[in-house]
Structures are given as structure tokens and as C-alpha cells.
Amino acid sequence: MRSRLLLRATRVVLPLAALFALALFVKGHDEPGGGFVAGLSLAIGAVLSLAAGAFPGRRLAAAQSLAVLGLLLVLATLLVPLAAGRPALTHAFGKLPLPWGESLKWHGALLFDLGVLLAVAGGITAVAEVFVRGRRPGEGEE
């Protein structure tokens, strides 16, 4: 049973969830937020869209690959300082001057957080997809 109303609503909810996730992600360094909750917020939008029947066709591999990319990004933040001769997970930080005179604080841990965001959002979406579509990963994909 598909609800067209719900399907319509998700077209608004998903971008809003993504925007909210972005805000949580960026503010996460100094305020409550961060990669994990941002990933959850994004996943809620994606799962709602899935439940409403959006994205027909195969999407499972994409969500899973996003999660894996996130995890590899996390590993990269661990390895890059090591390759540069510093202890693993050492982070770099600084200020990026903006053209209108202000500056933006950037932080190496932001990459780590981005990895967490992708892993959480992708992982939860992949799991939810199994329940929504009633299919195990690896079955009937190809």
C-alpha cells in the first residue's frame, strides 16, 4: 500500500533532513552535534523516503558503498599523520581566511567526523532497506 501523500512529503523532508544534518555536522565542533547525530538525522530522512516507496530500483549497493567510503575516510585520518611521521590520529587545524574579511576555523577532525557521518547514514539506510524491501544483501542484486 503506497501513500502518495507520504511520498510527496518525503520530497520535502529529505532535503530538510539533509540541511539539518549539515548544520549539526558543521556546528558539532564547538556545540552539541557532530558526525554521529548528523548521520542519524540524514538516515531518518532516507529511511522515511524508503518506507514511502521512493527510489525504486537498486539503491542498496549505493548506501553500503557510502558507509564503506566513510569508514575508509576514518582510517585515512588515522594513517595520513602516520605517513607524515606523526602519531596516528594527530589532527591539524587552522583558520581559513574568507574573502569578506572573516575567517573559518577548519579542523582535521572534521574529516574524521565526515567519515562517521557517511558510515552512520549509509549503514542505517542499508539496514533499513533490507527490512523495507525484504531482501538480504548479496541476494538478487546482479
Binding site: A61, Q64, S65, V68, L69, L71, L72, L75, L78, L79, A88, G138, E141, E142
Partner: peptide, 15 residues
């Protein structure tokens, strides 16, 4: 890190 990276790549290269 080595086994983790190998494991994640297994999933990424699945398709």
C-alpha cells in the same frame, strides 16, 4: 588498520 582496511575494501569491491 590493516585488517580493517582490507575488510572495508572487500565490501566496497563487492559489485
Amino acid at each position: 588498520v590493516l585488517p580493517l582496511a582490507a575488510g572495508f575494501l572487500c565490501l566496497l569491491l563487492k559489485g
